[in-house]
């Protein structure tokens, strides 16, 4: 076992790469499972050795990629506390929030040979949970859309510059209306503890969706 700080081997970047790759797959899968988009735009693919559904729609793919590209520097610096995939109804009120709560240790104890495969196994479990989460969630109303919220450890305004990495993809502080959910039901889905990152995923579901 070796103890490294976050600066060694640019570990923040490694973690950010792993997490963003995972989040991309997770977002696609959430959008498929929760029927935010027509199932026809999704294609069955394989990630972490399990089948996943990934969008084939160029515009949607670009949107997700741009979003995560902007989130990556925050994860890299351990500034992102939560990444939330919010599914909103026609009135833009949240009906479901898939909350990825991320915590990274300041010191990293790693054994490099088992590290990545172990993390991959843990992430696979998240994917499997997402793929069956519709069993524990109520149906969403038609015409839903989604957005991605990032809760930062410091004040959001302090991190604005860090996320503005794509010129035509600006970020703003979310409205209270987009964040607040009335009487949410909490559904824990999965937690993981690894040497490089701790993460938990839960869903907040609005009690009355229609």
């Amino acid at each position: 076992m070796t103890t490294l700080t976050r600066q060694d081997l640019n570990f923040g970047q490694v973690v950010a790469d792993i997490l963003c790759e995972f989040l991309e797959v997770a977002i696609h899968l959430i959008l498929y499972v929760r029927e935010v988009y027509p199932s026809g735009i999704f294609q069955k693919r394989k990630k972490y050795n399990v089948p996943v559904q990934m969008s084939c729609h160029p515009e949607l793919n670009q949107y997700i990629q741009d979003t995560l590209h902007c989130v990556k520097p925050l994860i890299e610096k351990n500034d992102a506390e939560k990444v939330v995939v919010v599914i909103m109804d026609k009135e833009h009120h949240p009906v479901e929030r898939f909350v990825f709560e991320i915590s990274q240790p300041p010191l990293l104890s790693i054994s490099s040979d088992t590290l990545l495969s172990h993390v991959e196994q843990l992430l696979r479990a998240f994917i499997l949970k997402i793929s069956v989460c519709d069993a524990v969630l109520n149906n969403n109303p038609p015409g839903c859309s989604f957005t991605v919220l990032v809760h930062t450890r410091d004040a959001a305004t302090r991190n604005m510059e860090k996320v503005q990495v794509i010129k035509d993809f600006p970020w703003i502080v979310a409205d209270e209306q987009e964040v607040h959910m009335q009487e949410p039901r909490l559904i824990p889905l999965k937690t993981m503890t690894s040497d490089i990152v701790k993460m938990q995923l839960y869903v907040e579901e609005r009690a009355q969706k229609t």
Binding site: P58, S145, V148, V163, P170, I172
Partner: peptide
């Protein structure tokens, strides 16, 4: 205490929209 989000909304895609891709975006 509020989070941040992209200004741009996610694209709206209906079943009528034509979707074609070679799948290599992943």
């Amino acid at each position: 205490r509020l989070p941040i989000r992209p200004t741009k909304p996610a694209p709206v895609i209906t079943s009528n929209d034509l979707i074609i891709s070679d799948g290599r975006s992943h």
